[in-house]
C-alpha cells in the first residue's frame, strides 16, 4: 500500500449517511432495495411501482457495509420521496386509482416532497438518481444538485435505467457537466462503480 493510500485510508470516514434523491420514478427505491440486497440485510426499503410518488416517506437502512482494500464503510442508506414542483391527483387516476384515492395519495405526496427537501440537511453525501432514458431531464435535478452543492454535500450522479434502449448516459454527463455513473438498479450493472464512488466520497 502506498503512503498516499495509507493516508487516504486513515482519513476516510468509517460511517456515512447517504441519501438517494431525485425526481419521481427515477428508480430511487429500486436502487435502495438493490443496495440493501447486496450490502445490507436484504430487507427492501420500499415498494417499487410505476405509479409516481409510491415512496411518500423517507426510510433508512443502517449497516450496509461496503469495502475495498483500504477498509470498510458502514452506510446508512436513506431512500427519499421523489421531489417535484407540482402534484396533480389526476395523474394517479390515469394509473387506475379512484378520485378519492388519488387525492389522498396527492396529499401524502406533497408531505413526502417536503420531507425529502428537509432531509437534505441530514446527509453526509447524496446519490442523485437521474432517469437516463427520460430526456429532457427534470429541472428538479438542478434544484437538488444546487442545494447539495450549497450545503457542501458530496454528490454522485447516477444515470439510472442505462439498460434501456432509450437511455443516454452521455447526455446525462453533458447536461449536468459532471462525472456520472451509468447504472441499472434493475439489473445491477454499474453497481461496483457506484460503490467505488461512495467509498471515494467518504474520503472527502
Amino acid at each position: 500500500m502506498s503512503i498516499l493510500s495509507r493516508l487516504f485510508a486513515r482519513s476516510r470516514k468509517s460511517r456515512l449517511t447517504i441519501g438517494i434523491l431525485g425526481a419521481p420514478n427515477a428508480g430511487k427505491t429500486t436502487l435502495a432495495n438493490r443496495i440493501s440486497n447486496e450490502c445490507g440485510n436484504g430487507e427492501p426499503l420500499g415498494v417499487v411501482s410505476p405509479v409516481p410518488h409510491e415512496t411518500r416517506e423517507c426510510s433508512a437502512l443502517e449497516h450496509c457495509v461496503i469495502s475495498d482494500q483500504n477498509g470498510s464503510l458502514d452506510l446508512t442508506i436513506v431512500d427519499t420521496p421523489g421531489i417535484a414542483t407540482s402534484i396533480d391527483y389526476r395523474e394517479f387516476q390515469q394509473h387506475g386509482l379512484t378520485r378519492q384515492d388519488s387525492i389522498q395519495r396527492a396529499k401524502e405526496a406533497t408531505r413526502g416532497v417536503i420531507k425529502a427537501i428537509q432531509s437534505l440537511d441530514k446527509m453526509d453525501a447524496a446519490i442523485v438518481v437521474v432517469d437516463a432514458a427520460r430526456a429532457p431531464f427534470d429541472q428538479i435535478n438542478w434544484t437538488v444538485i444546487g442545494n447539495l452543492e450549497a450545503r457542501r454535500i458530496p454528490i454522485i450522479v447516477a444515470a439510472n435505467k442505462s439498460d434501456l434502449a432509450d437511455a443516454d448516459p452521455e447526455l446525462v454527463k453533458e447536461t449536468f457537466q459532471s462525472d456520472i455513473i451509468p447504472i441499472s438498479a434493475k439489473d445491477g450493472s454499474g453497481m461496483n462503480e457506484l460503490y467505488g464512488s461512495i467509498l471515494s466520497v467518504s474520503g472527502m
Binding site: T85, I87, K107, I114, I117, T143
Partner: peptide, 28 residues
C-alpha cells in the same frame, strides 16, 4: 438561488389544494 428554489417547493407543497392550485413548473 437553489435554497430559494427549495423554499419555493416547500411553500408550494403546503399550498397545493388539489383543486385550483396544483403547483408549478420552473425553468432556468
Amino acid at each position: 438561488s437553489p435554497e430559494e428554489e427549495a423554499a419555493l417547493i416547500e411553500e408550494a407543497m403546503t399550498q397545493i389544494d388539489h383543486q385550483e392550485f396544483l403547483g408549478y413548473k420552473i425553468l432556468n
